[in-house]
Design a protein around this nucleic acid. Structure first.
Length: 433
DNA sequence: CGCCATGATTTACC
DNA sequence: GGTAAATCATGGCG
């Protein structure tokens, strides 16, 4: 019982100073001073203090009775005054220790993160904002909405739990604070408690609760991080495209082998047809180009397959187109359903046909599918005569340029005849602009 | 389980 | 911003 001993000492010290106390009663002299009733008083005080110190060990009724007894004790006013003095003295150290603690940087970090993730802050919008950010990060449009809704739902769940818990903590904190304040106010009748001290106690309680809140925030952050990482990982998760989608993409690729750079519109249409995103189409073509270029031999069989396929389609379409044109059809039948991604590609087609046939092909308006035919033929020729001079344009289709750097960029030359500055990928869309 | 195919990402370049 | 090239990471098959 160090506290008790200290208080006893303090009391001794106070009395040594010779203060008179309330009720005109002097406190007992310090140790060593002889007095006839000194020991008795000391005994008295000792008893009182002992009762105070052990009050918590007793039952409620017993304690209440004791409390009442103490309140009515003749020494109470004197003790009260002494305690006031002790408080006055120790108050300095308390005040010194009571500094405005700066906002915890860790807590601030957590708060910021929760705010950024849409967990904290306004109920509405926050979550969707985070989801939108995640959507932007995924690079896709409204494609992976299933994942989005899943992510959003989970985030909402986290947010709800977080807010519920936070509210619970706040409520508990307030309740406890009120309780403690009431207790202290009540106790201030028996012992000196300044409002400042109550304030300080409230501060301590709040700090304790905020540390609990910090744990809540921390675990919420962790949950969000896990959710987020899972969501982001899901982006990387590879799932093979459907067979149909691959077929559509391959058809386009091999029918545009001379220039496998679909325009933005073409990409969009391919994406729609394949039920994938535009960026997935871009990825696919990027991968396809590089892998085809790296190992043409490996893709030979596949190329033959699609070449034949598109050739048949093209032939049919061409025949139909010719018939249509004969039947007074002034427009280009680009709207054909069999692989008509190259609407603005007639220039390429026209020149290719020229090169192929050796003479100018006046029926250039036959249709987009002719391009497929051209590419198909080009491919078939490339099998035997090599890709380089398949079309008798050695300077344009050098094997070196195809196999190492910028292969198809030169291959787009037919289009660039029309526009010398256009680059790869812009071939299709540029003509339409 | 290892290997290959393949979709996605990263990095560098223009 | 689009692309090539390299790389990562997973799916699928034997």
């Amino acid at each position: 019982m160090d506290d008790q001993a200290r208080i006893m000492q303090s009391i001794g010290g106070v009395s040594l100073a010779g203060h008179s106390v309330q009720g005109g009663m002097a406190l007992p002299p310090p140790h060593g001073h002889d007095g006839t009733d000194g020991d008795g008083r000391k005994q008295d005080i000792g008893d009182i203090l002992h009762q105070i110190m052990t009050i918590t060990d007793q039952s409620l009724d017993e304690a209440q009775a004791k409390k009442h007894g103490l309140n009515c004790h003749r020494m109470k006013p004197a003790l009260f005054s002494v305690l006031c003095e002790i408080k006055e003295k120790t108050g300095l150290s308390i005040r010194g220790a009571q500094e405005e603690d700066p906002p915890d940087p860790q807590l601030m970090r957590l708060d910021n993160m929760l705010l950024a993730e849409g967990v904290a802050g306004p109920e509405k919008g926050g979550g969707s904002a985070a989801a939108a950010a995640a959507a932007a990060a995924s690079g896709g449009a409204a494609d992976n909405s299933i994942e989005h809704s899943d992510y959003r739902a989970k985030l909402t769940q986290i947010r709800q739990i977080y807010h519920t818990e936070l509210e619970k903590y706040e409520q508990a904190c307030n309740e406890f604070t009120t309780h403690v304040m009431n207790l202290l106010r009540e106790q201030s009748r028996t012992r000196p408690i300044s409002p400042k001290e109550i304030e300080r106690m409230v501060g301590i309680i709040h700090r304790k609760f905020s540390s609990i809140q910090m744990q809540l925030k921390q675990s919420t952050c962790e949950a969000v991080m896990i959710l987020r990482s899972r969501f982001l990982d899901a982006r990387r998760k590879r799932r093979n495209f459907s067979k149909q989608a691959t077929e559509i993409l391959n058809e386009y690729f091999y029918s545009h082998l001379s220039n496998p750079y679909p325009s933005e519109e073409a990409k969009e249409e391919l994406a729609k047809k394949c039920s994938i995103t535009v960026s997935q189409v871009s990825n696919w073509f990027g991968n396809k180009r590089i892998r085809y270029k790296k190992n043409i031999g490996k893709f030979q069989e596949e190329a033959n397959l699609y070449a034949a396929k598109t050739a048949v389609n093209a032939a049919h379409a061409a025949a139909a187109a010719v018939q249509n044109s004969q039947a007074n059809s002034p427009t280009t039948p680009n709207s054909g359903s069999s692989g008509s991604f190259n609407l603005p590609n007639s220039g390429d087609m026209y020149l290719s046909m020229q090169s192929l046939n050796g003479d100018s092909y006046q029926g250039a308006q036959v249709g987009a599918n002719v391009q497929s035919q051209v590419d198909t033929l080009r491919h078939v020729i490339s099998q035997t005569a090599g890709y380089s001079d398949a079309l008798g344009r050695n300077t344009m289709y050098s094997p070196h340029s195809l196999n190492t750097n910028g292969g198809w960029q030169d291959a787009t030359t037919p289009s660039s005849v029309l526009s010398a500055t256009e680059g790869p990928g812009s071939v299709h869309s540029d003509t339409s602009n």
